[in-house]
C-alpha cells in the first residue's frame, strides 16, 4: 500500500480540475491505497455546502464528497489559512474535515509516496 496525497486547489466550477482530482481520489480508494485529500487555495470552495450548479448547467460533482467515507477516504484536510482568507469556517462545509497548517501540510507531503496537485 502506498500513500497517495491529492492537493485540490481549484474552485468547484469554472474548470474541470476539481472533478479530475475527485475522480483520482476515488480510483485510489477503490485500489485500497492510503489517501490524503487536501483542499487548499480556491479548492476550499468545493467543501462549502449549498452549491446549486444547475443554474449554470453544471453537474454537482461535489455531491460525491458525501460518498468519500463509503470509499474509505478518511483523511480529508482543509488548509486552515485558505479557509480563513475566504472568511469560511467549518460550519460552512458540507463534510467534516480536519484543519491543517502549512507545517502540517509539509509533513503530509513529506510522508507521501505520490503527490498530485490538480
Amino acid at each position: 500500500m502506498k500513500t497517495l496525497t491529492f492537493l485540490s486547489r481549484h474552485a468547484p466550477f469554472g474548470t474541470s480540475n476539481a472533478k479530475a482530482c475527485l475522480d483520482m481520489v476515488l480510483a485510489s480508494a477503490v485500489f485500497e491505497q492510503q489517501v490524503n485529500y487536501i483542499f487548499m487555495d480556491e479548492g476550499v470552495w468545493q467543501l462549502v455546502r449549498g452549491h446549486e450548479p444547475a443554474g449554470i448547467h453544471a453537474k454537482n460533482t461535489m455531491a460525491a464528497l458525501q460518498a468519500l467515507e463509503l470509499y474509505g477516504v478518511e483523511n480529508i484536510f482543509a488548509l486552515e489559512e485558505s479557509l480563513t482568507e475566504r472568511n469560511l469556517t467549518l460550519a460552512h462545509l458540507q463534510i467534516p474535515v480536519r484543519l491543517c497548517t502549512r507545517a502540517e501540510l509539509s509533513s503530509l507531503i513529506k510522508t507521501s509516496d505520490v503527490v498530485t496537485a490538480l
Binding site: L4, N17, S28, T116, A117
Partner: peptide, 21 residues
C-alpha cells in the same frame, strides 16, 4: 483505459511525475 492504470503506475514506480497542473 481507466484511472486504475494510473493507480497501478503509482504502485509500481519509484517516482510519479506530473506535468500540466
Amino acid at each position: 483505459s481507466g484511472l486504475g492504470q494510473w493507480v497501478d503506475a503509482c504502485l509500481n514506480s519509484d517516482r510519479v511525475v506530473s506535468f500540466g497542473a
